[in-house]
Amino acid sequence: MSDSYFQRVRWHHDNAEDPVVLWAHVVDGWEVRKVDEFADGRLAWADEEHAMATTALGQVPIPLPDEIAVDPQLSASRRGLRCVTRAARCSSRRLLRPSGGVAALSGADSR
């Protein structure tokens, strides 16, 4: 049986070039899909078939949330990814036809 969970990592920093929330669906220690959320509301996503310029799946196994949280710049938890993945895919399509913004996602759950 595989170990599958959703993870949310909050990265506390001031660099606008880097994401502030990293969402991931982890299966047996490996990211299978992810969304990076930036302070300005931008979203970038990746899965096994898609990557963006700023976001791709990890090349090494991802640590458990407790291991990640040892770093004082990071806070991690197991949280939902489904809503944020849907929003990221929609926002990447909006690059072709600008429209309204995406709601803040740092509180999204798995529904």
Rank of each mutant, 00 (worst) to 15 (best):
S2Q: 03
R8T: 02
D71Q: 04
G101F: 12
V27D: 09
V84Y: 01
S2L: 01
E17W: 00
L105G: 13
D28C: 01
E49C: 08
E49Q: 11
N15E: 03
R82H: 10
G58T: 10
D40M: 05
S4V: 11
V70T: 08
V84L: 01
N15A: 03
F6R: 15
A87N: 09
D47P: 01
V27H: 08
P98H: 15
L105E: 12
R79G: 08
R97M: 15
V32L: 07
D109H: 13
V27Y: 04
G58W: 07
P72A: 02
S2Y: 05
Y5A: 01
E17M: 07
W45C: 05
A104I: 15
S77H: 02
P61F: 03
W11S: 03
L95M: 15
D28T: 01
A104R: 14
V102N: 13
Q7R: 09
S106Y: 15
K34W: 06
L22V: 05
A24C: 04
A69T: 08
G58R: 11
W23F: 07
D36T: 10
T55H: 03
A69H: 01
L81W: 09
A51D: 09
P63T: 02
V21A: 04
D71T: 01
D3N: 11
A103P: 12
G58K: 07
R8V: 02
H12Y: 10
S4W: 05
W45S: 04
D66L: 09
H12A: 09
P65T: 05
S92G: 10
D3Y: 09
R111S: 13
V84D: 01
V32N: 09
V32Y: 05
D28H: 02
R10I: 11
E17H: 05
S75R: 08
V70H: 07
P65H: 00
G80F: 04
L96V: 13
A104T: 15
G41T: 04
G100R: 15
I62K: 10
G58F: 06
E31V: 02
E48W: 08
Q73V: 06
Q7M: 13
S99Y: 14
E48A: 12
D71V: 01
D40Q: 06
E49P: 01
A76F: 06
W45D: 01
E67W: 09
A24G: 07
R97D: 14
A88L: 04
L22A: 00
R86P: 03
I62E: 12
A76R: 02
A103C: 14
E37C: 12
P98C: 11
V60C: 05
R42W: 08
V35T: 08
S4F: 05
V20T: 08
A69M: 00
P98M: 14
D3Q: 11
L95Y: 14
V70M: 07
S2I: 05
K34Q: 11
F6C: 14
P98E: 14
R79A: 14
D28W: 03
S106L: 13
K34P: 04
V102D: 14
H50N: 06
D40E: 07
A76K: 02
H50W: 07
M1C: 00
A16W: 06
R33L: 14
P65A: 00
P98D: 14
S91P: 06
R111Y: 13
D3I: 11
R79Q: 14
S4D: 09
I62Y: 11
L95C: 13
